[in-house]
Design a protein around this nucleic acid. Structure first.
Lengths: 332, 332
DNA sequence: CTGTTAGCGCTTTCAA
DNA sequence: TTGAAAGCGCTAACAG
């Protein structure tokens, strides 16, 4: 049986109120003498505070919950690092929950575990909530903010990159190197994020006077497999000289499949990845990428939760990072 | 102000006890009629249970906390998936905390957040606890188990692979392909796990009549950088024909550095990685590995927590997975 | 089947 | 500076 403030009170010969005060360090509300007694008793009993009980009365919590869509999202860790850094700066603790990929039941489970307990806010990393779960979240009164995902009509609070720009800049980087037949591999057009990337991609081509063919865009779910499948669809004889991978994983899928088809990167095919996680510098050749600032997303997310007024949307910067997967194309 | 069972009780015209009963679905302790009334009232008020309050009285929690050493541990996600699968099977929820790499303060923070609240158990993934934090953990009365890490003298509960075997089998795999001058790159000899791997490696060589030179073993912290540094130390003119990477990351570091030195894998240098995460099939050539069963570690961890009797240690199986980074060496 | 009562461990007025 | 008392939201005897 764990010791409680009651036990301490008895041992120190004071009231529980006093114990509570010195333990909470409400200085100027107790004397040095009693403080010493109380602390002594506490250590003697190996006292561990029951924060849950305290939160029950203060109706206040210092934990932030980060809900992640799947263990496979390789950029999540960067966001989480940002969250932790900012949270710890403000004496906030963070817990992480995995909500599964597109599994409404798993999402619900994760949401429930945090909603049913006192948390000061919920950050949803790249999770596309099922409608019923969104209702649940909104009904919970807990402040929340989506990270690395955006929405169309609904006015949900989110922080992410400008996905249109992401698509545009990735494509433009290739155009600048002389490429004109450029694919886009592994995007998901079912959601806002993907649609924006497609739009940016298309616009970049059109601004260069290029009309993209429908088959240049290969849809998918941003995964390695999606990248592979896309490259298979393009085929060894593809007219494309460059491809934008919808994510790092997709880009790697494209690259490896290209190699299997006998295409060398970047000699035969240039690739730009979207995300810019450490994966890009792990593979050979290292992938040039449009890199998102995931760390800052995390920071901004915590700030959003802490701010009273909700300025619903925020955009974090992106930048092109040149590595080794793009080659300048000389005019044919 | 969120609705409580009191509100429901009032609205439904019953006692809070009854509300509690139907909401907890203690069937046979209430009539259909009242149940309907209560549920109606609950939905009308948008009631959300305060589980923290409930746990306070039942002194019971259904959440398992997984403490992970760092966001960079790339195999953690597999363990977590195992944990979740097993946990959900038993109506348990899981939360994850990051404890930082070797930062005692961060460790403490993570531990505190879970110890101060009701959790049914704590799983520590590959975290090497500072002595004072171990004391903290043990004093908390909460069941715990280490995963993917082992200890020497102390009788701490842990579940992991047989690291001696890991080292032995990785080395042996190379020997079987005709290699005799084999390095070990990126191991950390400061901890039990690393020491065991070194021992296994050494024994495998000796069993083949080979006496390893001291410089064949390059110490490090299992990271990409450690792998790179190791390969740099070996140098382009190395006598080694094969290297065991202490982790996937280390192996990739070795491989990329080797390429920078003009060495081709596996033509000039064979590599076996330890861990066998998806990283191994992402890189080119794909890395042959001694693969650990991380998913099963997660499952076993939850089972350990649920079992009354603590059978302190458990070993999960490993297996050699042949990919593309090892080449048979013809006799010179 | 249902209500009354007590109490989980803690904080916070209010009085002293 | 301290203690008594009330109560956070919930569950669990116990009695009816």
């Amino acid at each position: 049986m764990a010791a409680t403030i009651k036990d301490i009170a008895k041992l120190a010969g004071v009231s529980t109120a006093t114990v509570s005060r010195v333990l909470a360090n409400k200085s100027a509300f107790f004397s040095e003498a009693t403080a010493t007694k109380v602390h002594a008793a506490a250590t003697e009993l190996g006292y561990q505070k029951n924060t849950a009980a305290a939160e029950l009365v203060t109706r206040h919590s210092n934990v932030i919950a980060a809900v992640v869509n799947s263990t496979k999202t390789n950029f999540a860790s960067q966001i989480i690092e940002g969250i932790q850094a900012e949270a710890h700066q403000h004496e906030l603790n963070v817990i992480i929950l995995y909500a599964g990929d597109a599994d409404s039941a798993q999402q619900r489970r994760a949401l429930m575990t945090v909603i049913e307990r006192p948390v000061m806010g919920i950050l949803l990393l790249s999770v596309d909530l099922a409608p019923e779960n969104l209702t649940l979240l909104q009904g919970s009164q807990v402040p929340y903010c989506f990270l690395s995902i955006s929405f169309d009509g609904e006015r949900l609070p989110y922080i992410t990159s400008d996905d249109w720009q992401v698509g545009y800049q990735a494509t433009q980087a290739l155009i600048k190197q002389g490429h004109r037949r450029i694919g886009l591999a592994g995007v998901d057009r079912d959601f806002h994020t993907g649609r924006q990337r497609v739009l940016g991609y298309t616009q970049a081509l059109q601004d260069a006077g290029i009309t993209p063919k429908a088959e240049w865009i290969q849809l998918g779910n941003y995964s390695y497999d999606a990248g592979q499948a896309a490259m298979q669809a393009y085929g060894a004889q593809t007219e494309l000289t460059a491809i934008v991978g919808a994510s790092d994983m997709a880009a790697i899928g494209v690259m490896n499949q290209a190699r299997d088809l006998g295409l060398l990167v970047p000699a035969d095919l240039s690739i730009v990845a979207i995300d810019g996680t450490e994966l890009c510098s792990l593979v050979q050749p290292q992938l040039t990428s449009v890199s998102q600032n995931f760390y800052e997303m995390g920071i901004a997310g915590v700030q959003q939760l802490r701010s009273i007024e909700t300025l619903p949307q925020k955009i974090t910067p992106i930048k092109l990072v040149n590595r080794q997967s793009v080659r300048m194309l000389s005019p044919e």
